[in-house]
Design a binder for these strands. Structure first.
Lengths: 217, 217
DNA sequence: CGTCCTATTGAGGAGTATCAACGTAGGTGG
DNA sequence: CCACCTACGTTGATACTCCTCAATAGGACG
């Protein structure tokens, strides 16, 4: 969730891949919790979010799950250097995607350097997000994790300070490497310290100054 | 450390960038613990390890550190999508590098799609490593982390099962999101369970069957 | 209104961090 | 060549964060 939105806006046009008119995507819709692709499946398609949201995750055999990222409109996902997907991807809610043939994109990338550069940029931005998240998972407390997460969601949803969390406590917990109980308790604690207000349902209103002080560098 | 070696072998030639003869790197050597670049500095160079090893890390203001990766001969590092480095890079020991001008590489990438594709492949492989590491940091126990780490180092150093750890306990701890004491205790525990032998200094000899059983999926 | 799923809260415990002491190895200067 | 010094590593005692298990409350939907 920390990843900044890539500069590829959905307004590039309904059928375009990263501004390349030769690549036309096939529209598709997915329902809440529906799987888009599974870990281990052949990676023959590439996806672009048009509406809704997608999460990608990895699981261990005993069910422990780590969400590696949330994908919002404009984001591309599903690229793999190898032949198979290393993640499972699922729609968070009703979601519209554009599907591209991976071979077609790769062939285009070998011909048009700007497409290949865009792919590189996308991968590098994802990498930066992943590295920031490693620091969070390896070295931050539960309070810092939740505060950083809430600030990030706020920013991605417009930065007004008041918003509805688009995911469940389970998703948040599996993204932050915590349990749902710890997430819940931490939000309660943040409310007790006056760093946020719960204004009904999943809506929260942040005191961004106080929140930032909890995260610091 | 988990990242598999990229297919770009150092034997590509002393001055070549990813098989591209137009790009000639400048050789440089760095001593133990010497900084190669710092977080926040302008990212105008790109590096390739020829000999030795490099670690990249991020730090919080209070000193908490997360090592995001170790780079061995053949690996490229230092790429950034933005203008500044998001990491600090330091040599683990006496290390020989090849330095490339970032602008030059990018210009070459816009002209030659195969260079851009190589950059994409490098970033994507790093991303895969980062995502595997997120699962480790977010959801694995200390025992699993250390066992996975040792198996990975063994594999990267030839897979014989017996090797010298090329980094200190502090580096291991900061890579695995643990403390040096926990790393030390966990290695002792692994020895007690007959999953490895300490054969003097930093050398260890793994019982890979037992180690693998501890890591599973 | 009941059912199911999600979220909150509490009590207790496991796992890892922290603080401290001691042991070991490698390098330096006498 | 040896003694010292410093950095690294191990082990122990204790503390604390976060997890686990359990019960309750709140919302969405039929």
């Amino acid at each position: 969730m920390v990843r900044p939105r890539p500069p590829v806006a959905p307004s590039d046009g309904p059928g375009l891949f990263a501004g390349c008119p030769e690549l036309i995507g096939t529209p598709a819709t997915y329902g809440r919790e529906e799987e888009i692709f599974g870990e281990g499946e052949e990676a023959e398609r590439v996806y672009r979010v048009m509406q809704g949201a997608v999460r990608t995750h990895k699981v261990l055999s005993d069910g422990r799950r780590q969400i590696t990222g949330f994908h919002l409109p404009g984001d591309l996902f599903g690229f793999e250097p190898g032949e198979t997907h290393r993640h499972t991807a699922e729609a968070l809610s009703g979601t519209r995607l554009l599907i591209f043939k991976r071979r077609q994109v790769e062939r285009m990338a070998t011909r048009r350097a700007e497409v290949a550069c865009q792919l590189w940029g996308l991968a590098t931005r994802s990498l930066r997000h992943a590295q920031d998240h490693m620091l969070l998972l390896g070295r931050r407390s539960a309070l810092e994790r939740v505060a950083a997460f809430l600030l990030d969601v706020d920013q991605r949803l417009g930065g007004t300070g008041t918003f509805d969390l688009p995911m469940t406590r389970r998703d948040i917990a599996d993204y932050l490497g915590l349990t749902i109980e710890t997430v819940s308790r931490t939000i309660t604690q943040l409310e007790g310290e006056g760093a946020l207000l719960r204004t009904g349902g999943r809506q929260v209103s942040l005191r961004r100054g106080r929140m930032h002080r909890l995260v610091e560098v």
